[in-house]
């Protein structure tokens, strides 16, 4: 119960941050337009290749990777907390650090679900990705699962960059590009050597993407969603361990307040 109260308080912080960053106009005309352009950029490669199948494959992959790109803003927003100088107070308080940081960047989840829903449901039909009422309704929870579980992974990245704030954007962007390459967004996972396939099995995004593709093909997304949820929980546990280690080390060597390195 205590964990939920801390998490809820932190989400209020996240909502305030989001409202300070975007108005509905800038979100719609700047951010949503940018995501649509990103998805179109990859979809048009299918046009260049002269293959409607590839166009469809790339549109779905690019849309899920747009979720990844946005959710990885967690790297930046986690460091905003430290920049604000609240970390010593958070470490000193009895609240769980994971509850704080899990709430602190949650704004990227609903935003990414909204942008990806628009891309798949509105832009998708122009490029051969069609939905029935049933699959369209099922798509939103699948995207929620994908975004939430990817967020669990992003929390680990965010926890790591708390100790290396200068490279927060590098980490987020390189991770996003690597996941685009290897998680099955632009080419099937089987294109890469076998060990790459095994590594990306640990990432919730790979399974979320599989679920979205299954749904778009009229198949069953449940298997992909379950695998995404299981790996998501795994990353949440890792995030807790990394944050705990950050706090313990910081207490010991006095770097909690000034550890901008």
């Amino acid at each position: 119960m205590h964990w939920i109260r801390v998490f809820a308080a932190s989400t209020v912080n996240a909502a305030a941050d989001f409202a300070a960053t975007y108005t509905w106009r800038t979100w719609t005309f700047a951010w949503l337009s940018r995501i649509i352009a990103q998805v179109l950029f990859f979809t048009l490669i299918g046009t260049l290749l002269g293959s409607p199948d590839k166009q469809r494959f790339l549109l779905i992959g690019a849309t899920v990777m747009a979720i990844v790109a946005e959710v990885l803003f967690t790297c930046a927003s986690s460091t905003w907390e430290r920049r604000a100088g609240t970390l010593p107070l958070l470490v000193a308080s009895p609240g769980d650090l994971l509850a704080v940081f899990a709430g602190r960047s949650i704004q990227w989840v609903p935003s990414s679900v909204a942008t990806s829903s628009v891309c798949l449901l509105v832009v998708g039909p122009f490029f051969g990705v069609h939905w029935t009422w049933g699959t369209a309704l099922a798509l939103v929870p699948v995207l929620v699962v994908t975004a939430v579980t990817t967020y669990c992974f992003a929390l680990v990245a965010g926890a790591f960059v708390l100790n290396a704030m200068d490279i927060r954007n590098i980490v987020a962007n390189v991770l996003g590009a690597l996941m685009t390459a290897f998680c099955g967004a632009v080419v099937p996972v089987s294109y890469w050597p076998g060990w790459v396939g095994q590594v990306v099995t640990l990432l919730p995004t790979t399974h979320g993407l599989r679920a979205v593709r299954a749904l778009a093909d009229g198949g069953n997304p449940v298997g992909g969603c379950v695998a995404a949820l299981l790996t998501g929980v795994l990353w949440l546990v890792v995030a807790r361990l990394v944050l705990h280690r950050l706090a313990e080390h910081g207490r010991r060597d006095g770097t909690i307040e000034f550890g901008d390195s």
């Binding site: 960053t21 975007y22 800038t26 700047a30 951010w31 940018r34 352009a37 990103q38 179109l40 950029f41």
Partner: peptide, 8 residues
Amino acid sequence: IFQNALGF
């Protein structure tokens, strides 16, 4: 916002 938006 504009920096993020003007790439793609």
